[in-house]
Design a protein around this nucleic acid. Structure first.
Length: 579
RNA sequence: CGGGGUGUGGCGCAGUCGGUAGCGCGCGGCGUUUGGGACGCCGAGGCCGGAGGUUCGAGUCCUCUCACCCCGACCA
């Protein structure tokens, strides 16, 4: 490709309001352009990157027996009503009517459609197992898109679906996907960890997320330094202190003015946070009041609490709602409240004599104990794991890292096949629901995440497997001396003939402009020729990652580049990376 | 949805006290230059996000509205 005809210009300055390195660099390098909030066009350079990522995904899906198909972006609402998700999913799913006044939706995922296909096409156990996938546009009207291609509303995702006779079959396919994902991300040059995760709106029995570590990630993962354990913070557990076995003391009400926070209370009484009970109030989606209690040194994990309370969602309770159950904001405790589901963390069960609110402004209770002073409805682990907490496997101090979710794998089980009636007959003629799994990778997000992990102050530093082009070629010098241009033209033809992907900067620009654009776009190999190199019959070859260049005879450029590229590709097929 | 911020040429920005819009980069032409974002001259390009209002007069003041960005809530 000759840069003089490339559609899309590089930007010297990025728009002032972009924050993430990937967002800024992808704009500057002419990979993407915004159309609206969370809606982007992929320019030719960006589209090449995404297509390469998708091709890697395709190859690895095919390698484990996947069959590619394509499902629609527009769905009749009825299929979503059948699965029960038409009402369960909120405004994140966009709905509209067609000309016949029929309810339609824009696809945010494709479980319904694949299950509908499965019930039509699969009849017999002889047809199972099956793995199908597609790479398709999805629309999710996110309440907040952000960060360039990291979180968008319209995006492209590979989603694969497995169809099996039983759990054992699902387990096997789940493992196949896991390993395929490891190969995919290794080949794209991403450093990642695999973590256990919440199953969220998808329903299902198990899920893992493939997390690319990045300071700009939206998720937090807890990782054991010994490699024993890694989980999304949503579900992460940790080793608790052993119960003290302290005897229960008499409850006592004391005046504690101006102590509306746990810290203020602990300071006022001169006790550690771990001797206090913190009350947090929510209203569940079902309408019930959820009264959560946790030891003062810990924080509530809302995902865990949601599950413990059996709620689909939780919203912080209003002051009016809190008073309505007999509690007082800032001085709340479960003692003598009513019409509330009381969920206490294990820490509250195991730590006697905690100081809790008196449900009366300015007063607290010393020595509260569940079972004696109030009856918890649920005792559960509702605590958020933090850096430094003990690994549940080996006890080492966990680290907390920010990460971007680039892929996930889900065991759906029979959640969809049951309700949609996707069944098969076994050898005995007995009907069973198909056991399903679903597996997603966002290709645009992968591209942006690679940039997050692979850039420097000059621009993007692409792994060769996903670079827009393998080589940036340029001539340097004045327009009057045509020798460098002619030499570069010949190299362009020779490299192209050797099937090397070349972005040829044939523009009459000064050296600095060409070097800077090449660094910004970030192709892994740079070749330049000038009157200076031609004096010796040479071209300059420099890796994007290297500080220095090497000089090779013009006739040796093609084989040298081939050897360099082969080496770069080989590096990416090494061991799975962890950072 | 809550909080904060920004809307002025393609991009980055300035615009004071209300007086009819400017700078840098980029873009087109000519010339000089030519290995890390050159220089000179000439030139094109603006519904100052939109609507309403105040005023003799609004980029500037007021009201409403829309869009985008950031934080939070939310989220495969």
């Amino acid at each position: 490709m000759r840069m003089s005809h490339l559609f899309g210009r590089t930007l010297r300055e990025a728009p002032g309001d972009v924050e993430l390195p990937s967002h800024r660099l992808m704009l500057r390098a002419a990979l993407i352009r915004p159309l609206g909030a969370g809606i982007y066009s992929l320019l030719p350079l960006g589209w090449r990157v995404v297509r390469k990522i998708e091709q890697i995904i395709r190859e690895e899906m095919n390698a484990i027996g996947g069959q590619e198909l394509l499902m629609p972006v527009v769905h009749p609402a009825d299929i979503w009503r059948e699965s029960g998700r038409y009402d369960a999913v909120g405004p994140e799913m966009s709905r509209f009517k067609d000309r016949g006044d029929r309810d339609m939706v824009l696809a945010m995922t494709h479980e319904e459609v694949i299950t509908d296909l499965a019930r039509q096409e699969i009849n017999s156990y002889r047809q199972l197992p099956m793995l199908v996938y597609h790479i398709q546009t999805k629309w999710r009207d996110e309440p907040r898109s952000r960060g360039g291609l990291i979180r968008v509303r319209e995006f492209t995702m590979k989603d694969a679906y497995t169809l099996d006779r039983d759990e054992a079959g699902l387990d096997a396919q789940y493992q196949n996907q896991w390993h395929a994902y490891e190969r995919i991300f290794r080949r794209t040059g991403l450093a990642f960890v695999v973590v256990g995760a919440d199953t969220g709106m998808m329903g299902g029995t198990a899920s893992h997320e493939f997390m690319a570590l990045s300071p700009h990630g939206e998720d937090i993962v807890l990782i054991c330094p010994n490699g024993d354990y890694a989980d999304n913070r949503e579900v992460a557990t940790f080793v608790r202190d052993a119960p003290t076995g302290e005897a229960a003391l008499p409850i006592e009400e004391i005046e504690t003015p101006s102590t509306t926070t746990i810290q203020a209370l602990a300071d006022f009484l001169g006790i550690p946070l771990a001797k206090t009970a913190k009350a947090v109030f929510y209203t569940g989606d079902s309408g019930q009041f959820v009264f959560a209690v946790i030891r003062g040194d810990l924080d509530i994990n809302e995902t865990k609490l949601r599950k413990a309370a059996g709620e689909g969602g939780l919203t912080p309770a209003t002051v009016e709602e809190i008073r309505a159950i007999g509690a007082e904001p800032g001085f709340g405790s479960p003692v003598a409240v009513h019409d509330a589901l009381i969920v206490i963390d294990e820490s509250v069960r195991d730590t006697p004599n905690l100081v809790a609110g008196a449900n009366r402004a300015g007063w607290h209770l010393l020595n509260t104990n569940p079972g004696r002073d109030y009856q918890p409805d649920v005792v559960a682990d509702i605590a958020s794991a933090e850096a430094g907490f003990s690994c549940p496997v080996c006890g080492a101090a966990l680290t907390a890292e920010r990460a971007i979710e680039v892929g996930n794998i889900f065991k759906l089980g029979t959640r969809y096949s049951n309700v949609l009636g996707a069944n098969y007959l076994d050898a005995d003629g007995i009907s069973h629901p198909i056991v399903m799994g679903s597996y997603g990778i966002g290709s645009g997000r992968v591209a942006a995440t690679i940039v997050e992990q692979h850039h420097d102050e000059r621009g993007i530093v692409w792994p060769v497997s996903v670079a827009p082009y393998e080589v940036s070629l340029m001539w340097i010098g004045g327009a009057d001396d045509t020798a460098p241009q002619e030499a570069a033209d010949r190299l362009y033809d020779a490299l192209t003939a050797a099937a090397v992907e070349v972005l040829y900067d044939d523009r009459p620009e000064r050296a600095g402009v060409k070097f800077n654009d090449a660094d910004l776009i970030g192709n892994p190999v740079r070749i330049s020729v000038s009157s200076r190199t031609l004096e010796r019959g040479e071209a300059e070859i420099k890796l994007r990652t290297a500080a220095d260049a090497e000089f090779v005879a013009l006739d040796d450029v093609v084989p040298t580049v081939r050897r360099i590229l082969d080496g770069l590709y080989a590096e990416l097929s090494g061991e799975a990376q962890r950072s």
